[in-house]
Design a protein around this nucleic acid. Structure first.
Lengths: 222, 222
DNA sequence: TAGATTGTTAATCGATTAACAATC
DNA sequence: TAGATTGTTAATCGATTAACAATC
């Protein structure tokens, strides 16, 4: 059985459309995409599994294995074509399309996120930005006008928001999350330290740079 | 053999001081610590493996397994004492001490990082902040005076900086990384999208929120 | 051709899970 | 006591790695 998918595969070893990737494979493919996207920006035409390994800290054999489960994307002696591999991995992850996200909090962090290419590079468009501070509501951050929280429900519905990004103080995060859940948003990206309570059908991802640092430090100290 | 460590264990199943944790265990322990730290802030006295699982998305059996490899920290029918578990996990990760970090870039992102408790909560103290913009150098952000890049080498040496955090534009990131490497810093935390080239003894962690989002979206779409 | 790198196998190791006795 | 939750076992599954033929 092909270990890359949860159910069966075809006789020739390629993945059937419609099968779900395992958690590990989806996570790794996402990381390959991050490096590939940036490599493309830098004008790279090909990249080897060895180079992908250096940037992702994932074993090069596993990278080749992950990719070869979906087709023969590489060229022996050369590596993988960056452009076509980006397209292939996006196809596998089904994230070729555009998805709209709403950003909460127009402070330093919110402004930093709004002005970054980070999300846009991966097909996520920030289409609305919110704040509670009446001194900030109405002002412009990049191309976006800062909206009042009262517009949350209508914007989520009209713009088909699939992800809410929280760049608000910890004390405000749960209240925003509650309203997002109520409005039907299923993915919340939490930049605050607050532990969020949400129903089981909603996914919360809490950003934790200090945790990553702890982990790096452990291997530095030992 | 105890699977939590790379070499041997004692006859009673407890981990020998001096053994190195496997990558997976160290990563998971770091995540428990994130949740525990925040739970403590919220005044929680105990927490169950079930609750830790909800916040970390790690299976509760595995959490109990990870912890029980180092001692019997829990109380049956009750859960784990938050305070003492924080202390135990920190001891295991050997990150009980304080570590000094330097922050590069005093823009929106740099200011957001400088004013966050995120690093301080885990024993990382931001002791210096740098920028190239002469209009910003000399100004105060929180308790920190923004320094000129020319002070980099002397500050790293005098303050015993172990981690450099890059909140600079992608175009400037490699140059800062080069100087940090030259100055002897072994851990670089990269908030830019730039793929950094460093010698093998230096660890780069690139923050990738959009990648995490891709991953969450995949499971939402399928 | 010579060098490099993929695609793939086979073996091992660690992660995951269900289940449940122990016990608070 | 009754309910809850840990600590632990045993079985399975997926990840990891080395090695190397295929081939660009």
């Amino acid at each position: 059985m092909n270990p890359l998918i949860e159910e069966q595969d075809t006789a020739d070893g390629l993945i059937v459309e419609g099968e779900r990737l395992s958690l590990g494979v989806a996570a790794r493919l996402s990381r390959y995409l991050q490096v590939l996207t940036q490599a493309r920006k830098m004008g790279r035409e090909t990249i080897s599994s060895q180079e992908l390994s250096e940037y992702t800290h994932i074993n090069p054999t596993q990278i080749r294995r992950d990719l070869s489960g979906f087709g023969k994307f590489g060229k022996r002696g050369v590596g993988y074509n960056v452009d076509s591999l980006v397209a292939e991995v996006r196809k596998i992850l089904r994230t070729s399309g555009q998805h709209n996200i709403a950003l909460f909090g127009a402070g330093n962090l919110g402004q930093a996120i709004a002005s970054s290419d980070m999300f846009a590079d991966h097909g996520f468009q920030i289409v609305a930005m919110f704040d509670v501070d009446s001194g900030v509501v109405g002002s412009e951050v990049g191309d976006l006008r800062v909206r009042d929280f009262s517009e949350l429900e209508s914007v989520v519905a009209e713009q088909e928001i699939v992800v809410g990004v929280l760049a608000v103080p910890a004390a405000a995060a749960q209240a925003v999350a509650d309203r997002l859940v109520e409005a039907g948003v299923k993915i919340i990206f939490n930049y605050s330290e607050q532990l969020l309570q949400v129903p089981p059908e909603v996914t919360v991802h809490t950003s934790s740079p200090a945790v990553d640092l702890l982990y790096a430090l452990y291997f530095y100290l030992t």
